[in-house]
């Protein structure tokens, strides 16, 4: 089963960390990526740029309109994600708990939909 592990980030919480603590988070991500690579469970990952530079695209009556920023100023935002392929939902949760941000904010674990299916 594939899962999306979403890193929900709170800039205030992260900003209150000391430089050393912030560096520890970064290197913990390196460790986590190494672990996933070695276990054969890594499908993909990405860190996302700060949402202040985001654009929102809307198409209305066939006309695209681009505006700055997301809809609302959220306290938390999606800072990055991992996609893992693992045996059980419990393993996905176990992996989520290893992401350093799990200790600061939270990691949302979502199953990825597959294209296969059984007729009933």
């Amino acid at each position: 089963m594939k899962y999306l592990l979403m890193i929900v980030m709170n800039p205030t919480v992260f900003g209150e960390l000391s430089e050393e603590e912030q560096q520890a988070v970064v290197s913990a991500h390196d460790d986590f990526q190494k672990l996933l690579t070695e276990s054969g469970e890594l499908v993909g990952f990405a860190a996302l740029a700060d949402p202040s530079a985001s654009r929102t695209v809307r198409v209305r009556d066939g006309v695209p309109a681009v505006t700055d920023g997301p809809y609302v100023e959220a306290k938390e935002h999606l800072a990055g994600y991992y996609v893992v392929d693992c045996e059980t939902p419990a393993r996905a949760e176990e992996l989520a708990a290893m992401i350093p941000d799990a200790r600061l904010t939270g990691i949302e674990v979502r199953a990825v939909m597959g294209s296969g299916g059984l007729e009933m």
């Binding site: 089963m1 199953a111 990825v112 939909m113 597959g114 294209s115 296969g116 299916g117 059984l118 007729e119 009933m120």
Partner: peptide
């Protein structure tokens, strides 16, 4: 509850 797109559609 299903994680299959096709089952969901059905």
């Amino acid at each position: 509850r299903t994680t299959s797109l096709r089952e969901q559609r059905y």
